[in-house]
Nucleic acid binder design. Sequence first.
DNA 1: ATATGTGAATTGATTCACAGCG
DNA 2: CGCTGTGAATCAATTCACATAT
Lengths: 214, 214
Amino acid sequence: MASIPTATVGRLVTYLRALAELEEEQSEKTSSDELARRAQVSAFQVRKDLAYCGRFGTRGSGYQVAVLVRELRRVLGLTRPWHVAIMGMGRLGQALADYPNFDQYDFLLRGAFDADARKVGMVVGSMTVAHVDALPEAVTRDAIDLAFLTVPAGAAQSAADALIAAGVRGILNFAPTMIDVPDGVRVEPVDFLAGLQRLTFHMGARASEAAVSP
Amino acid sequence: MASIPTATVGRLVTYLRALAELEEEQSEKTSSDELARRAQVSAFQVRKDLAYCGRFGTRGSGYQVAVLVRELRRVLGLTRPWHVAIMGMGRLGQALADYPNFDQYDFLLRGAFDADARKVGMVVGSMTVAHVDALPEAVTRDAIDLAFLTVPAGAAQSAADALIAAGVRGILNFAPTMIDVPDGVRVEPVDFLAGLQRLTFHMGARASEAAVSP
DNA sequence: ATATGTGAATTGATTCACAGCG
DNA sequence: CGCTGTGAATCAATTCACATAT
């Protein structure tokens, strides 16, 4: 049971989604072929990835959907609810506060914070916006595990510092900037501007090629 | 000048951000060490990545910020404005329509579409929401290059099909699902739920380790 | 002297082919 | 026979050491 490659971890999520589809279709069994098609990777890759996590299949027969869902959720740490706070209640923070699909994945929104006093008291979804000063108390009281960081890039580092000081150990960083964190705190970037620029890179390359031909 | 590795392309964006900071600080020159610190990678990595794109530095002296910005923008295809449409004007689509930093990167919002007739006519930011039926005409008229796909997962494939039929060749997919596209069309996922689950994977592993010790 | 650019070495990920088990 | 699980081989990415240019 060596450690699971990071590239594999990234794909487990897509397998879990394919499995959710299969559950909706009342399928009880599936195969590496079918998962591969739905997750847009090779069947080799699916089998190798799943094998990194354990031996969940039956040779000659395939995988049981229910078993695979349970095991992958376990590997991904989705066995208990995670309490989430949103830091920064601009448009994006508000959009996230209203996102309908969190419960389904055992993520529970437990707080909404902003440094701007004018936003305090605003009701968004099921939450009332609180001031950042209330963060340390709230993290302890509501057992907040992780936070969505949805402040402007210039405010990201200080907002992250406040979250970490309050006891948050996981940050999903929506700001288009890197943040420094101490050991024991994990940051995952969600960077749509980076995705946008990867897109123009590939489209630009194609356009140039076309332009080069006579 | 072999092709640039995909991992490198992903990092070029972060170098460009570090360079933007340096420009604001009025720095004219920089080094692989400084860029490495700001982009949170090794200096080896910076030099190798930049060398894939060309020879932009001066040995013994470093890189000129202005030169590097110009060259990286060129490599990433940011030499001309890109016209963008938003497909799906829910909370996320609205948040994106209001995002202030697009012009800075030469992305111009040129259309907002929704399949729901009740949303048509709504004014968001500088745009008025149009019905999906108006898409083909709009893509041609406004020379729309790419689209943000911000519809629910269940509607993502058909919305993507509509975009592609209308002539869009690049899609930034915010829906938590895979979409199938023909050759010549590029999709980049922006998947915050995947990021969230990578976070719980790493945090869950740490928690388990802690729980295992006596 | 100093910091880039690059071949060589190492590490990691993907692909493949097939052994193993139902 | 069918499909998983896995060692071996290929491919890609990262790290390193140093030659090279100013």
